[in-house]
Design a protein around this nucleic acid. Structure first.
Lengths: 141, 141
DNA sequence: GATAATATTGAGAATAATTCTCATTTATAT
DNA sequence: ATATAAATGAGAATTATTCTCAATATTATC
């Protein structure tokens, strides 16, 4: 189901503000956005949208799994559209760029956890820090 | 080198406050501590230790790799002694307990990253959320 | 052990992200 | 079109963390 459907089917209203926030994500793939980014971009569509509303929309959209929280270890939280694919992020410590990492095997992780402890996995978070290709290249030059 | 040596060898002073913070970690293995926890526990040894000092000590000890930051996705950061072993954490969403996870193969991760993108890994952070054995057992009962 | 130089500290102010409050507005079922 | 309840905007409140700066304590040197 799409974002609109997910909001409505859970009994929430599809407000102009929520639509604007969803659109902002759709129109800005690439680096995950923080609440201030989303607020700024959404303001172009809805000049009066409040920051608190953006926070509330992000919380709701996370709950509905329309967007996902991304942990970049910066001051603010970041968010990106949930593409459905299982993925994590490569974060360049030089240019702060964020790139997808698809090499995490969920079943393998769950099996390893089971193998060493009595723990039932619900979710996990992996962030990988280092240098991206572009920064590596410019360092060599 | 031990904590004391690492502080001194980098030209920092071994103050009573820093010693107290280090001792607190040594005396409280188990759940990682947040700055407020450390401040409270250190206050038992040094009643006048300030919270800002605890923050500064934690920052320094992280830099020296005496302690490591642990990302539990709670409001505050958490810290634990660096045992030297490569490990991550299993976080119980029910009792908030934190348990070590040693199943992460660093070389394998680096190889997988290299396999799918031009990125040089420096560090990574993995947190696994779910139900611990004790909470699973009490849920069944 | 005393002294001087300077790193460190304590206290509280400052900052910044996030959440809360509440009167007003708006989406939607009817 | 209307009623109802959900959602919003604005700013206050909260909370973790950092900063400032005068006072203090560590340590190298004598």
């Amino acid at each position: 189901m799409d974002a609109h459907g997910r909001v409505k089917s859970h009994g929430y209203r599809m407000t102009r503000q929520r639509r604007a926030v969803i659109e902002v994500f759709a129109e800005h793939p690439g680096r995950p956005l923080n609440p201030a980014d989303v607020h700024l971009l959404a303001s172009e569509k809805m000049p009066d949208i409040g920051l608190a509303t953006v926070y509330r929309a992000l919380e709701l959209l996370c709950e509905l799994d329309v967007v996902r929280r991304v942990h970049l270890h910066e001051e603010a939280q970041h968010y990106e559209l949930n593409t459905g694919e299982h993925r994590h992020h490569l974060v360049c410590v030089s240019c702060r760029g964020v790139f997808p990492y698809r090499g995490c095997d969920l079943e393998e992780l769950e099996e390893r956890v089971r193998g060493e402890s009595d723990f039932q996995v619900i979710s996990h978070c992996l962030s990988i820090f280092g240098y991206c290709g572009e920064c590596l290249a410019s360092a060599k030059a």
